[in-house]
Design a protein around this nucleic acid. Structure first.
Length: 138
DNA sequence: GCCAACGTTGGC
DNA sequence: GCCAACGTTGGC
């Protein structure tokens, strides 16, 4: 099963808001980058993603799950190609995994989070998923 | 089709 | 607040 990492500035959309959105989940709107869009389109229902707080916090705070596969982004202008998927919060990490901690682990040096820091929807390998989950207290 | 200018993201 | 990375735009 593929794994992902989704980024949000907590001032715009935080993990707490995602939790409050409940089991039904919410649309992950606002992706305006083609690489990120392609990743959204690859996601299948049930895929899991790390929820990362960019800018403020700079840490992975929880695990989200795809509840609805991609469909046109309601926040896009007519004719634009952007898509969204619906995510729900699954569970928080017991201990958030900070960017510093990720940088400090040589096994995570190839993570897209470090290599393509501006990409807001990224793939995560199974190994990376396992390591970060463990660091997060799972 | 190239590339300079410009805007945005996100870490520091 | 600065700046590196990088995507987009527009002149040629």
């Amino acid at each position: 099963m593929p794994y992902w990492l989704i980024k949000s500035e907590p001032e715009a959309w935080s993990w707490d808001q995602q939790v409050k959105a409940g089991a039904k989940g919410t649309a992950w709107t606002g992706v305006r980058n083609h690489t990120a869009k392609l990743n959204l389109m690859k996601m299948k229902k049930g895929d899991r993603a790390f929820f990362y707080h960019s800018n403020v916090g700079k840490e992975i705070v929880g695990i989200a799950e795809v509840v609805k596969e991609h469909y046109p982004d309601p926040s896009a202008k007519a004719g634009e190609p952007w898509v969204v998927v619906d995510f729900k919060a699954v569970e928080p990490l017991k201990a958030p995994v900070t960017l510093d901690a990720i940088k400090g682990d040589v096994k995570l040096k190839d993570m897209a989070l470090l290599k393509q820091s501006r990409l807001s929807v990224q793939p995560v390998t199974a190994d990376e998923w396992k390591i970060v989950s463990k660091m997060g207290g799972k």
